[in-house]
Design a binder for these strands. Structure first.
Lengths: 220, 220
DNA sequence: TTAGCCGTGATTGAATCCAATCACAACAGT
DNA sequence: ACTGTTGTGATTGGATTCAATCACGGCTAA
């Protein structure tokens, strides 16, 4: 009969979730200092659960902690970001392979709708949101124990730079992204895991090379 | 003039390191309950840094925390372990590729000595130690920002089951492991990254299939 | 003018104390 | 005999408090 969800034992996780969201939406840019007392005050808690939240986000790579000094929103160099894309290029196809036989036709229809919506999206934030949802929706059918979390973590860590790149350099004329998305949906619909893997790996690879061509995204 | 290394700000990390070691050596088996006060007393600290240490190990996957209930050494099911091996199969070859052009001849000589020593090792713990050192030594030349840590984390999480498998089923007559190790050294020496990737992926894959053939390792 | 030094303030790290939660066992009812 | 319930003890979660550390300013001296 406890209508109140037990707020005991989840304070750290709740604070972590809100801070994570603030970082992903761009509210807190990389390099921003995070003061423990600020967070504590903002959430009406003490500094102790705040430190737990910071530990969690540090483990996710979103926050960088320095002993006796403080916490900052993590920054990435171009080299680090390329490394993450190369990891994605290897493991996302594997995760996709797990999903291909498990997705329902309705799942695939929804995927195709997302790909269509992206083609019509003019605004940056909407584009980013749809792109993220499209790709992560390719991975929700398989119940993996850690691969799904790993992939989502890689998306989270690179989120800010994807936004910066899109804002600065996205050319409306570039159709190949949408083309690849539709190729991917088509391969999934045919349940052709090998082809789906190839298309996805190529898609990520092309994105990485495109990003590497614009190192100014990572300056400061 | 501080001869004392600043013990401030590192208590959690130190406790985490010792607990990690205790888990990896098999001193604490999966499923073992970890009481915060025990750890605190054993390390002469309060429960607060212990909780930080547990958070760190939880992030590494070595410890499982349940709110308001306690902490246990993480267990793996066969399916989870297979998933980790499949991830390793994809990302370790990538990490190896980064290393192949950077390893010195001396590095490669040391690697070959390790492979030789493994062939002569009769005792399980020594075999495990040499095997771990052999593989991780393939990855120390490249300074990656996170790929190296990911791989090490996967080795750590599966360490206990590698030990259990080796204890129960290792047949002295199986030469293919050593054969593959020497093939790997040879490919590295020729700086043939493609071949090295292939050999390593096959090696991990073969190990996974072998493991899947003995599900009793994961019972209890 | 500039480089090095030192003191102060701000911020984090850790210990103790109290409250909330859960596991377990004894008990009562069927 | 078995199942559902309730109470107690053990254990974890969080707040407050104090100690250690670091960043940053002004100051002195070359």
């Amino acid at each position: 009969m406890t209508l109140e969800p037990p707020t005991h034992g989840a304070a750290g996780a709740r604070i972590a979730a809100e801070l994570r969201e603030a970082i992903l939406t761009g509210e807190h840019a990389p390099g921003t200092r995070i003061r423990q007392e600020d967070l504590a005050g903002r959430h009406g808690a003490s500094r102790l659960p705040v430190r737990e939240a910071l530990r969690m986000l540090e483990a996710e790579g979103l926050v960088t902690l320095v002993a006796n000094t403080g916490a900052w929103v993590s920054s990435l160099s171009l080299a680090e970001c390329e490394e993450m894309y190369q990891i994605r290029e290897r493991i996302e196809p594997l995760l996709l392979r797990f999903n291909v036989p498990l997705m329902s036709e309705a799942d695939i229809d929804a995927l195709e709708l997302l790909a269509d919506a992206m083609e019509r999206s003019g605004e940056v934030e909407q584009f980013l949101r749809l792109d993220r949802e499209f790709h992560l929706s390719c991975y929700t059918a398989a119940e993996t124990s850690m691969l799904g979390d790993m992939v989502q973590g890689l998306w989270n860590r690179t989120q800010h730079y994807r936004r910066a790149f899109t804002r600065m350099f996205r050319s409306e004329g570039d159709r190949s992204v949408h083309h690849e998305h539709h190729l991917l949906v088509s391969a999934i619909r045919r349940r052709d895991a090998d082809e789906a893997e190839r298309v996805l790996a190529g898609h990520i690879r092309r994105t990485r090379l495109e990003l590497a061509r614009h190192p100014t995204v990572f300056e400061n």
